[in-house]
Design a protein around this nucleic acid. Structure first.
Lengths: 199, 199
DNA sequence: CGTTACATGCACCGATCGGTGTACTTGACA
DNA sequence: TGTCAAGTACACCGATCGGTGCATGTAACG
């Protein structure tokens, strides 16, 4: 999958194994699930020897934990930091990208151990993400930002989970609900006739 | 877990193994997941020999398929067939029971094989369930029953999935959204001051 | 009775999986 | 050039898992 990385000075052969492993983990864990992805397959995909993987990560559980930890500062900013969108547009644009099943929900389903470190990461991420939504809802002038943020987060999780089973796109339905909620939460008409993606 | 069943005429020792196996499957698959539940553990919980399990079901995959097939005629009727509730109340009461993660979504996450028979059952069940919601929404006089039914189904899946990760109860949030959607979909005021569960 | 269908108990198999030991190679840097 | 850290190649281990063979037991029914 991922080619050998090229460092700042020419190509280093096997260096940067850690990042390649994590990259392969993201792809394979997303496509096949965590339990269904073996360490050997992971090594092959990353172009890394098995020994190297165990030198970087103490075991598969630690790799899973790191795989989940890496999600924190990535997904959101691209959308939330865009200056060309109003807060209201940001809240609605969340439903335009049809993302795969939330990795944390997937991990919570696949990992039996309730004390697995991944569980804590999952909760933390969900809280942080929801907080971001609440903040944006507040910027948009929502009457009850906490409420709206929690509701939109729920819709996103629902859409990604339901899409796993149904061919019909649950994100379209979720977007419609989101529009209803957002319209209801922003008291008067905050921005008349603003640019809105064609439904 | 389950004691030896007592048939109509006294206690039969091991008879009724098939149902005991399916009962244990429901419990263990729900609590531990499918992949994390071994056949041996399943047999122990059901009080059944391993050989018997393989005589009733060709293999674990067939057992999983049958486990999922059994969901069809069970969950819904209790609520949908109640005569003491108006259609509108039925739609809202769906969110009162905080069910665990939808077994079909769980299965879709855990089973890698896209051709696994479980996938088809999952789609069929989701469609049937949504159809039931649509029908009830139509009975309630919804302006766009298809739309409302699909939206409520999405909310239920979202609540069950999100509850898997968060301690905070997503069903409360989902119920609030459902109320907004239902109120918005039933044009005038269908039933003024009807009995409503305390929020 | 005896028959028959269902269930048991237990040993066992092959495959897979997570993880390790060890000796070897390679690239960067001084 | 020599050193050292990072990575490689490959064999190997123990545990687990899905699944099977086979001899035995037992409840129900005629």
């Amino acid at each position: 999958m991922t080619e050998v990385e090229k460092g700042p000075k020419g190509l280093r052969r096997g260096r940067g194994a850690r990042e390649r492993i994590l990259g392969a983990s993201r792809e394979l864990f997303r496509d096949q699930g965590i339990n269904c992805t073996g360490v050997d397959q992971l090594c092959t995909a990353a172009g890394v020897s098995k020994r190297t993987l165990y030198q970087h990560f103490g075991g598969k559980d630690e790799l899973i934990a790191e795989y989940l930890r890496r999600f924190d500062p990535e997904v959101l900013p691209e959308l939330f930091d865009r200056a060309d969108l109003t807060p209201r547009q940001k809240l609605l644009a969340l439903f335009d990208e049809h993302v795969p099943l939330c990795p944390f929900i997937g991990a919570a389903v696949e990992l039996r151990d309730p004390d697995h470190p991944a569980r804590a990461f999952a909760r933390d991420y969900k809280h942080a993400f929801t907080a971001r939504l609440v903040e944006t809802a507040r910027d948009a002038g929502a009457a009850d930002p906490e409420r709206l943020g929690e509701q939109l987060a729920l819709l996103l999780d629902g859409a990604s989970a339901r899409s796993r089973v149904l061919d019909a796109d649950a994100f379209v339905t979720a977007a419609a609900v989101a529009r209803v909620l957002v319209d209801g939460a922003l008291p008067p008409v905050s921005e008349p006739a603003e640019l809105r993606s064609v439904s």
